[in-house]
């Protein structure tokens, strides 16, 4: 079979991309290879490690298991974020940096996207709820301690800001 390219329009980080792709491309492949948005990482390729996590219409999903063609018409957010910045994500990024939650950094973009998803649904998560929210994300470096601490820190800071 030759490659029947299909025109697909993707809204990524608020920007519109018109691409022609074969239907068998995953969202991860298109983000990385077509749009050159390489902040979203590829690792296990089967939804276990969480490095490819992006938000689709606000929900965290594994972009390696999602056809790009099916993401058409939906709002996609990656770690690169909108040009204007995402204050919630920025707060999480600083918490991860300051608390030592980042070592090799390969899990980090996925972890941060997952944290955004967690905190928008549950602004004051308990430690157990944080851990539960991370089960789709492997980290081999940190043992998760500093990641949990960073998420607690970000949640606290965002809640304080909300209250102010």
């Amino acid at each position: 079979m030759t490659k029947p390219l299909v025109p697909v329009t993707l809204m990524v980080n608020g920007e519109r991309y018109d691409v022609s792709i074969p239907p068998w491309r995953t969202l991860l492949e298109v983000l990385r290879e077509t749009l050159n948005l390489t902040g979203t990482k590829r690792s296990c390729g089967e939804g276990q490690c969480g490095t490819c996590t992006v938000l689709i219409d606000g929900k965290a999903v594994n972009s390696c298991l999602y056809l790009a063609i099916e993401a058409q018409g939906k709002a996609i957010q990656t770690i690169e974020g909108p040009a204007a910045g995402d204050p919630v994500v920025e707060r999480i990024q600083h918490a991860f940096a300051n608390k030592g939650a980042i070592q090799c950094g390969f899990c980090t973009p996925g972890m941060i996207i997952a944290t955004k998803s967690l905190l928008q649904d549950n602004p004051k998560p308990s430690e157990d709820e944080i851990r539960e929210a991370l089960v789709g994300h492997l980290c081999r470096c940190t043992g998760y301690v500093q990641i949990v601490e960073a998420i607690q820190d970000a949640a606290g800071a965002l809640a304080a800001k909300e209250g102010a």
Partner: peptide, 15 residues
């Protein structure tokens, strides 16, 4: 904090 932490946190670190 790690010097490269924010680079990694923003997806700018190139692997």
């Amino acid at each position: 904090p790690k010097k490269d932490a924010l680079q990694k946190a923003t997806g700018r670190a190139e692997y």
